[in-house]
Design a protein around this nucleic acid. Structure first.
Lengths: 114, 114
DNA sequence: CCAATACTTTACCAAGTGGTAAAGTATTTA
DNA sequence: TAAATACTTTACCACTTGGTAAAGTATTGG
């Protein structure tokens, strides 16, 4: 059995429970962005944006670095992997069952075609 | 590009952001459970348990059914899959990069061993 | 049919979340 | 060095979340 870093999974899942933060993460999925670039698609004020980035940063999904007056942000996929792993492990039993059912239905379907 | 049912991803991720609810989901991962069975490992009151199950149910992770005076709960892995898919898609770019780095480091390592 | 079981509803509360406005700091740029 | 840029901090507010206690409902079991 895998030992999950449960306390941080709380924060990772909570961070991803907001559409603004998910869109930010998706934006970062293709490369580095500045705070202003991340803020651009949204109408909210900069302090609100800063809070969202703070949430992503605190749980380790996003790493930031300030160069001059600009803060650059990038994704750390390891934390996303933690969440993914939890979902895989939890869903496995049922996915296996569905898989088995699916295989069964397909084989039945093939028999009907013969 | 996959179209995510964004509003419900909010709820799925939020549901999984709580250790009580994740433990419930893990418990359900191996089969059906009654409310009392789900409640047993925790010290909190039944109304609190009911709220947690309600959150899991509202976002579709858990399906419940009342038979007699007992409510039975089971997992619907499809919603977990939605979250998993989002994580895979978002992490892919960086995972590919890490994969490439890893491959590179391994090949370097092999060269040093020769 | 009365009591025990298994939830369920209602009312309430403290703490956390997601937003704002306004003012402040640190780096360029002209 | 003065003005513009790119955040950052502070103070505040409405709403949601996670819990409680207490009372209520619906099914069994004796």
């Amino acid at each position: 059995m895998v030992k999950y870093l449960d306390a941080n999974l709380d924060n990772v899942f909570a961070a991803l429970a907001d559409p603004v933060r998910r869109k930010m993460a998706q934006s970062l999925a293709s490369g580095e962005r500045t705070m202003s670039e991340l803020a651009a698609p949204f109408t909210m004020t900069l302090p609100a944006i800063l809070k969202h980035i703070g949430v992503l940063q605190k749980c380790g999904i996003v790493i930031t670095e300030k160069r001059g007056r600009v803060r650059y942000c990038r994704l750390d996929p390891a934390k996303l992997m933690d969440a993914q792993t939890w979902l895989e492990e939890t869903g496995r039993f049922w996915n296996d069952k569905l898989q088995a059912l699916n295989t069964y239905l397909e084989s039945e379907n093939n028999e009907n075609q013969n």
